Amino acid sequence: MRDERSDDAARAAGLTGLVTEPLSRRGFVMTGLMSGLTLATTRVEAQVIHTDSAGIEAGEVRIPAGDGPMPGYRAVPEGAGPFPVVLVIEEIFGVHDYIKDICRRLAQVGYCAVAPELYARQGDLSTMTDAKQIVRDVISKTPDAQWIADLDAAAAYAGSAAKGDLGRLGVMGWCRGGRGAWLYAAHRRDLKAAVAWYGPIQGERTEIQPRTAGDVAAEIHAPLLALYGSADAGIPVATVEEARDRAKAAGKTVELVVYPEAPHGFHADYRPSYRREPAEDGWNRALAFLKANGVG
């Protein structure tokens, strides 16, 4: 029998072009980051961007968390610093080469970028080839309170051991991580700016994931840049507009940019959904937004 709820979750996560065949569940936790790209993709696109490490320090790190070291990736310019901090929130697929490259891109323009593996306790994403399984067995079982605390731990690590300046703290997230950017902006009072790339606004509320991005829109503590595509089958633009208007009514700042005909995942250069022009424009807007709001 087909799992319709899993199908709906997969659509909401923007899984067009991703593998969804049934596989057996893996029962161990990640202790390190995956090498290469996620296995949960039908093919790797030729336009994959690779940013080198010249002039920066980049690599896997262990981030002190409440129950032990959490795997993560850090990229930071060479030199004494301190540098403004951007917390990078992954998609549902783990901190793979695409997320690592984003950290290096940020470091190349002067940021201390840290991407913690927020799903390390729930499953080993490096082995999973079934996108719907990831949603069902990992994403839906990761409490919001857990990953928010882990982002706080990553920020503390950046400020104490990674040459980061927490007085200039920002967050940027993609897909499910875009939802995370909204929620983290409602959590962290000293956050200066947030950027949400096509993060789901609606969704099922559960005991461990009790609020949606739309629910917290009026509570954000920092200006938020929302980058979305008009052709995103899982995120109606009207829902983002409603969240923006709810934030505005509460005296908050949400700058919404909607790219015509862009699908979900338009920034993901390793996936068929990639669209170069909106991806590049969104990236330039994101960097300008961070600097304009004190993260730079």
Results as ranks from 00 to 15, higher is better:
135 V>I: 11
169 L>E: 08
89 I>V: 15
149 A>G: 09
95 V>F: 04
169 L>P: 13
140 S>V: 01
88 V>F: 08
176 R>P: 00
145 A>L: 10
127 T>S: 13
143 P>F: 08
172 M>W: 14
179 R>W: 03
143 P>Q: 05
122 Q>S: 12
154 A>W: 00
103 C>Q: 00
181 A>K: 00
130 D>N: 15
117 E>K: 05
109 V>L: 07
131 A>I: 00
129 T>V: 11
130 D>S: 14
184 Y>I: 10
138 V>D: 04
189 R>C: 01
95 V>G: 05
155 A>W: 09
100 K>C: 00
164 G>R: 02
104 R>I: 11
192 K>R: 15
117 E>V: 11
88 V>N: 01
100 K>Y: 10
193 A>R: 06
197 W>Y: 15
178 G>A: 12
138 V>E: 02
145 A>F: 01
113 A>V: 14
163 K>S: 15
206 T>K: 06
101 D>C: 01
86 V>N: 10
92 I>F: 03
130 D>G: 09
134 I>A: 09
100 K>N: 08
213 A>F: 14
157 Y>K: 05
90 E>Y: 11
147 W>R: 07
111 Y>T: 03
137 D>F: 05
138 V>N: 03
92 I>Q: 04
142 T>A: 05
189 R>M: 12
125 L>A: 01
173 G>W: 04
119 Y>H: 07
179 R>I: 02
189 R>V: 13
160 S>L: 07
215 D>F: 13
134 I>S: 03
122 Q>A: 12
143 P>N: 03
104 R>S: 10
135 V>T: 04
121 R>Y: 11
188 R>S: 14
130 D>L: 02
210 P>Y: 12
149 A>T: 04
199 G>F: 12
160 S>K: 15
137 D>L: 09
165 D>H: 03
191 L>D: 12
162 A>S: 13
188 R>F: 03
103 C>V: 06
123 G>W: 04
161 A>L: 13
117 E>A: 14
88 V>R: 03
159 G>E: 07
144 D>N: 06
184 Y>D: 13
117 E>C: 07
115 A>E: 07
116 P>N: 05
94 G>P: 05
170 G>P: 00
202 Q>R: 13
180 G>V: 03
171 V>D: 03
118 L>P: 00
206 T>G: 02
192 K>I: 02
160 S>W: 09
142 T>C: 11
204 E>F: 08
177 G>H: 08
115 A>T: 11
127 T>F: 12
152 D>C: 09
188 R>V: 06
98 Y>Q: 02
131 A>S: 15
165 D>W: 10
144 D>M: 09
161 A>W: 14
127 T>R: 13
114 V>N: 04
95 V>A: 01
199 G>T: 12
92 I>P: 11
206 T>Y: 04
201 I>A: 06
192 K>W: 06
115 A>V: 09
154 A>M: 08
92 I>L: 10
92 I>C: 08
108 Q>M: 02
91 E>L: 08
85 V>Y: 04
170 G>K: 02
101 D>H: 06
98 Y>H: 15
81 G>N: 01
